[in-house]
Amino acid sequence: MAKTYDYLFKLLLIGDSGVGKTSILFRFSEDAFNISFISTIGIDFKIRTIDLDGKKVKLQIWDTAGQERFRTITTAYYRGSMGIMLVYDVTNEKSFENIKNWIRNIEENASADVEKMILGNKCDLEAKRQVSKERGEQLAIEYQIKFIETSAKDSLNVESAFYTLARDIKAKMEKKQEASNPAGARSGAHQIRANEQQRKPTSWLSRCSLL
């Protein structure tokens, strides 16, 4: 039976409430935008399959609630993710400052080798901008994370942000496989599945009560 995908990557979107996480995901998965703000409750996900160098990559992207009151629910999802998008709003200084806190959160809860990326969203609102692109860049360099400014509204860089993160995860994974599978002696009968690399002994079922 033909496999529906070659890789499955689990990505996570985090950042303050209202910075546009849901909007970015909505743009990426449905190529649409909604001006009204419906704050996310708890957690939700969307799936989109992309093509990376001839490989079918399924992205399961988890969208978290930015509001403080859902923090416990959302941090439970850090562990399983392979890539995390840290989103701030360029028109909101506070959301930018909070990026540091979000990074600390990641350090405390996610696996150490998780790929990260910082997104400065709403860059279409030039007139209301509070955080310059340079400051975003500066912060990213400080943490050695990639950075890009996006606009879910104008569909700017959203696509490329996800592709970049997916590509980096893929590269990192292939490098690891290379290391554990020297001389590339792979049977080729079927792909080794990406998520197998992530599998931890702790069952997700045991977190039933976390929510």
């Binding site: 708890g42 996900f45 399983g80 599998r199 069952s203 079922l205 977190r207 976390l210």
Partner: peptide
């Protein structure tokens, strides 16, 4: 068999129990 449930199943069940609690 790996001796562990497939990850899509464990993910799904944890997601569902989260949703159902809410």
């Amino acid at each position: 068999p790996t001796g562990q449930a497939s990850s899509f199943v464990t993910d799904m069940l944890s997601y569902l129990s989260g949703v159902l609690t809410s």
